[in-house]
């Protein structure tokens, strides 16, 4: 009799656990919450050099309509070893992810990064245009 009671309670706990999982909000492939926000833009941009100090000679010019980030860097910046940092609107994420130093030395072919909104429905591709101080 006791045995049955234990089995029953175990089953009940398992059922509870199952239901709690279903209650959670949906998550995307990165394990991030998918929310209701549809906003999709870059609010700030930073660029660090090989020594993790800023190489920006001016504040960035971010055009959220044309989807461009124009950034002037100091004369003599090591363009092959830069660490970009994007500040995004709440719940948005960036693709591709920044995992280390990025080579920005090909100035004629600017790099592009896609911002994905919180609801994962809106995607906007930003072009990072770098110019060197003269």
């Amino acid at each position: 009799m006791k045995k049955y009671a234990i089995i029953a309670s175990l089953l009940f706990i398992a059922a509870l656990m199952g239901s709690s999982c279903k209650k959670e909000k949906p998550i995307d492939e990165d394990g991030l919450l998918i929310t209701t926000r549809a906003e999709c833009y870059v609010s700030n941009f930073e660029l660090l050099g090989a020594d993790f100090q800023t190489v920006r000679s001016k504040a960035p010019v971010i055009d959220t309509v044309a989807c461009t980030i124009k950034q002037e860097v100091f004369f003599g910046t090591d363009l092959k070893n830069l660490w970009p940092q994007f500040t995004l609107v709440t719940d948005a994420k960036l693709d591709p992810k920044i995992t280390g130093k990025v080579d920005f030395s090909d100035l004629a072919n600017p790099k592009t990064y896609t911002v994905i909104s919180g609801n994962r429905q809106v995607r906007k591709t930003y072009t990072v245009i770098i110019t060197v101080q003269k």
């Binding site: 100091f74 003599g76 092959k80």
Partner: peptide
């Protein structure tokens, strides 16, 4: 391998 040949500032 990817470092430049100058360090300014």
């Amino acid at each position: 391998s990817t470092s430049p040949d100058f360090a300014l500032g």
